[in-house]
Nucleic acid binder design. Structure first.
Length: 656
RNA sequence: GGGCGCGUAGCUCAACUGGAUAGAGCAUCAGCCUUCGAAGCUGAGGGUUGCAGGUUCGAGCCCUGCCGCGCCCA
């Protein structure tokens, strides 16, 4: 409703501007939120923007505009403020009646498929908090897109043939002397992702002490890539088992995927070979005959860097795509994968069912042999692709996009979006709590980077467990009479809200210095705070039923005039206005690509409700019209809170 | 050396992409539970937005130069 009026006003003002001054070509005029609520509901700085073009004082333009605009449906007044702001006041009764009737603008649905790739964890050890930020950001963005009517496919790329998997396999082989069969048994009988976490740290430090052992890694990479050996089988056992644990961890946070494209298939189905041919034909890469990159296929830095050089010289920054020994780099495979995402490779994976979630959702995984008929499932071929990857990889993402551009896929290059975010580091205090030794230099820093190689970091499941434990204490202390399993399920929902909100409240390019104290907090700007407001709204409605009363027929009791009377109360009006902005807040967050904006809105909304809750005692209200109105407000808040929480991937518990 | 990002209240972060008196949470202090749940509410103090210039009706945001920090590439 708010968005609808905003658009209507922007159009009306723009058409007057065009009629009066012949500029703007009818493009919607800019609207803003006034700084102060006393200024009205919508502010327009149009006069300032026109002042220069027209060489007139802003105030004079504003006066002309306001008298020329005339009446706009739903707007009760236009005022001039400051030295040229146009401030508009909405007709409160009209607005509320529209909300009650459920008036919405028709969605501009597009059938274009948007692909979002996120999570993308190396399948060689347990997930940690850095991975959580990625998955939660990605999943929330997917929810934002879907809730605004877009079609989205969620991919989780599995690098099951890379160095990290190879290292763990080396660990099982050379440090543990285990066969594939023995390891397969371990996957069933142990906390396998934790076991690999430690083993990975062990083999990494072994390499550090015995540099010659790195030959094991090279040999291992080779035999994994070849396939058909015991080592290759072991690699699959490890990677598949770890992927399973990752999906289970993410499922705890309500995160699911549609398809898992795996690197082993990128290799076996010759995705890279196909992309390589295209790149060679279009001369996007060339064979280097001299210098340090002699014998490699490289992409000239001019393709992805401003001011980059074409020729390999001393300061050569060209990117090697194929090494002189013939192996392809990670970027090369990434270009092939990106081409496939847009349906530009001329090839597809085969697919098999990988896992069904408890809610019935099916995840598929790539495979190299036909297991289902081709027309049963089709993935990839998106019109727009978001890669949720941390900002440390922005250089590589630039190279991938340059690859598309060099192949003349300009539109796809423009629709390749690196959805980047900063890393999650550890606060020095948290390092101390975890017994991680810090150098004097590290102690002075605001944060310390986690290291998977050293096994330093906070495991995702440990953090979730800790959150649940704390939430359970809180819930139990308030509800001693409830069944333990009910308290437990409330605690789980609270923990998830705390975690998801914590990862979302920071904007994407802010480094999170992870701190247990802050992450485990349930007061103030947190997920549980938003849940609490929702629970209280529901409680009012439930208590009403307990008293043997039922919800009035709002449409019958609350006429436009009644709404108008009730909303003369400034507090009520401001609260309702705030609650009605959910759609427009989510849409704006999509446009700016910032899930943190949705989190922030959820908090503001919860704050508004808490204030409403404190100010008005709904059930005790003697005046029937006002009581009906307050009940409607309560129900409206509840619906908006639930909708916003849903976009954040959070549910409110029955009680808390 | 080059590229990207960051620097805002004691601490952690916002600021609708150039708009009006820079806002939240935490922490501190003072109030509010016999009430639809206090995981809450009300209020107070706390700021030269790293520094110096520039662009314009208007700059935390854009440009230039410094200072400090981080990441990536070499």
């Amino acid at each position: 409703m708010f968005h609808l009026l905003e658009k209507r006003i922007a159009q009306a003002v723009a058409s007057r501007i065009e009629a009066l001054y012949g500029v703007g070509e009818g493009k919607p005029a800019q609207t803003e939120q006034p700084k102060q609520t006393t200024f009205g509901e919508i502010a327009m700085p149009a006069a300032f923007q026109l002042a220069r073009q027209l060489k007139k004082a802003p105030k004079q333009i504003a006066e002309q505009l306001s008298s020329a605009v005339g009446t706009i449906e739903g707007v009760s007044a236009i005022e001039i403020a400051g030295n040229g702001y146009l401030n508009l006041r909405l007709d409160r009764g009209y607005y509320a009646a529209g909300l009650l009737a459920g008036v919405k603008e028709e969605e501009v649905r597009s059938n274009e498929k948007i692909i979002v790739e996120h999570t993308n964890i190396n399948p060689n050890k347990a997930a940690h908090i850095g991975h959580l930020r990625n998955a939660i950001l990605g999943d929330t963005f997917v929810r934002m897109l879907r809730s605004t009517g877009r079609t989205v496919e969620v991919q989780n790329y599995i690098d099951n043939t890379g160095v990290q998997v190879a290292d763990v396999v080396v660990g099982f082989r050379h440090l543990e002397h285990k066969t594939a069969t023995e390891v397969r048994e371990l996957t069933k009988t142990t906390r396998f992702d934790y076991l690999c976490w430690d083993l990975y740290a062990r083999i990494s430090s072994y390499y550090a002490d015995h540099p010659e052992a790195k030959q094991w890694r090279l040999d291992m990479l080779h035999s994994i890539e070849e396939g058909h050996s015991e080592d290759a089988e072991l690699a699959h056992v490890v990677a598949d088992a770890i992927v399973k644990t990752h999906l289970a961890t993410m499922w705890r946070l309500h995160i699911v995927y549609d398809v898992l494209p795996r690197e082993s298939e990128i290799l076996h189905l010759q995705f890279w070979a196909t992309a390589f041919e295209q790149l060679k034909q279009r001369k996007a890469i060339y064979f280097e005959n001299q210098g340090k990159n002699k014998g490699c296929w490289v992409m000239p830095s001019s393709a992805f860097r401003e001011g980059g050089t074409d020729e390999g010289g001393e300061g050569d920054e060209s990117k090697v795509i194929v090494r002189s020994n013939g192996t392809v780099t990670y970027v090369g495979k990434d270009i092939a994968y990106q081409l496939w995402k847009f349906g530009l490779l001329g090839k597809d994976f085969h697919y098999r069912k990988w896992h069904i979630y408890p809610n019935g959702h099916q995840v598929w995984a790539s495979t190299d042999s036909v297991q289902v008929s081709k027309d049963e499932h089709h993935f990839g071929g998106g019109a727009r692709v978001y890669n949720v990857i941390d900002s440390r990889q922005s250089y590589l993402q630039d190279v991938v996009v340059a690859g598309l551009r060099a192949l003349d896929y300009t539109r796809q290059a423009e629709n390749s979006i690196h959805f980047s975010y900063e890393m999650v580091a550890l606060s020095p205090r948290t390092c101390v709590e975890m017994g991680i030794e810090l150098s004097d230099e590290d102690k002075k820093r605001p944060y310390v980077e986690v290291s998977g190689r050293k096994g330093l970091g906070v495991k995702a499941d440990d953090l979730i467990d800790k959150l649940i434990e704390k939430a359970l204490e809180e819930v139990t202390s308030r509800h001693l009479d409830e069944a333990p399993e009910k308290n437990r399920s409330a605690a789980e929902q609270i923990a998830i809200a705390a975690l998801r909100y914590f990862m979302l409240k920071y904007t994407r390019n802010s480094v999170i210095a992870f701190d247990f104290g802050e992450a485990l907090s349930f007061v103030g700007e947190t997920g549980p705070y938003v849940q609490y407001a929702t629970v209280r709204a529901r409680n009012i409605l439930r208590k009403l039923a307990d008293r043997g009363e039922s919800l009035p027929d709002f449409a019958a009791v609350l006429s436009r005039e009644a709404m108008s009377r009730q909303l003369a109360n400034e507090d009520c009006w401001q609260l309702l206005l705030q609650a009605s902005k959910a759609d427009s807040a989510i849409e704006r967050a999509v446009a700016s690509g910032e899930p943190a904006h949705v989190a922030r809105f959820a908090f503001d909304l919860a704050q508004a409700f808490s204030s409403f809750y404190q100010k008005f005692h709904v059930l005790d209200e003697p005046d029937p019209e006002k009581k009906a109105f307050l009940l409607w407000m309560t129900d409206y808040f509840r619906a908006q809170l639930e909708r916003t929480l849903d976009v954040l991937g959070v549910e409110a518990p029955e009680y808390m």
